[in-house]
Design a protein around this nucleic acid. Structure first.
Length: 270
DNA sequence: GACATTTGACCTAA
DNA sequence: TTAGGTCAAATGTC
């Protein structure tokens, strides 16, 4: 999904959200019997947030044009996370997505770095495909939007050869989708905690087991166990958790958990 | 003990 | 020279 500039994407999404919120507000106003005042206030609050984000992004874009020759992202109102990469010449050209609440995309990623970025209060996280050892060179860069904490700007680099080759060789393909907690700043209970006792996901929380079985090969190879060497390799689900407090503190230090469960994907997804 | 994550250092493009 | 991207040793967790 190749998108336009991140700024355009954010604007488009926020405009959609704004329209939806406005629609919701009108529905609540016209509701019969009348809904509670708090509900209307909530819709109005959502609308205000959208307005503010759009205003901020628009201002940032204007500022960016004005300072086109200025390298410093710090001087720009636009969140650094939404800025086009100033440089990314290693590897294939990226495409970029903005996702809300989740960074899950159906692939298994391994974090290999984190960097504080100038002008952004949230660090940028670097992931590479967990199956790098199988020759998959895909990487991605994840950064939470400064203006919209629930939104992640995710840039992808390289192509997944694991999905096309490695995964298809297996009787049990990698999950085509991901169970994700919906990392956000709204105090959502982490998926791990939620699922730990779930009868559907009996082995969630068996983090160590996930590491031993699921884990990705290659990379700094001495520490990576090839899935093909594991007799009990099973489906993996990547879960992102983001304690609201930590995020609000600007730490953005959520933990990615790679969790193995013994269920089929069909079971997992239904 | 085995593995994932963290984080400081290094590399390199702009 | 600066700062984004990556590496790899140290550390933490199970």
């Amino acid at each position: 999904m190749a998108l336009a500039t991140p700024t355009a994407v954010v604007l488009e999404l926020m405009t959609m959200g704004q329209q939806s919120a406005a629609h919701l507000r009108e529905l609540l106003r016209a509701a019969s019997p009348p809904v509670q005042v708090e509900h209307q206030a909530l819709a109005a609050e959502i609308l205000r947030c959208c307005d503010r984000v759009i205003a901020a992004v628009t201002a940032g874009a204007t500022d960016k044009k004005r300072k086109a020759t200025d390298r410093g992202a710090t001087s720009c109102h636009l969140p650094a996370a939404a800025m086009p990469s100033k440089r990314r010449v290693r590897g294939a050209e990226a495409h970029r997505e903005v996702q809300t609440d989740t960074t899950a995309d159906g692939f298994v990623w391994r974090k290999y770095g984190q960097k504080d970025i100038n002008g952004s209060k949230h660090p940028r996280l670097y992931y590479r495909c967990a199956f790098r050892g199988e020759g998959c060179a895909a990487t991605r860069r994840v950064q939470r939007s400064q203006e919209e904490p629930a939104a992640f700007v995710i840039a992808y680099y390289g192509e997944h050869t694991c999905g096309a080759a490695f995964c298809q060789q297996r009787a049990e393909p990698l999950p085509p989708t991901v169970v994700d907690s919906g990392s956000n700043a709204c105090g959502v209970v982490s998926a791990v905690d939620r699922n730990r006792d779930s009868p559907l996901l009996p082995s969630l929380g068996a983090k160590q087991g996930a590491r031993r079985h699921g884990a990705a090969p290659g990379d700094t190879s001495r520490r990576w166990l090839s899935p093909s060497s594991s007799s009990s390799y099973s489906s993996e689900v990547e879960l992102g958790t983001s304690p609201a407090e930590e995020f609000l503190d600007g730490n953005f230090d959520w933990e990615w958990e790679t969790v193995v469960n013994s269920l089929s994907f069909g079971d997992l997804l239904h």
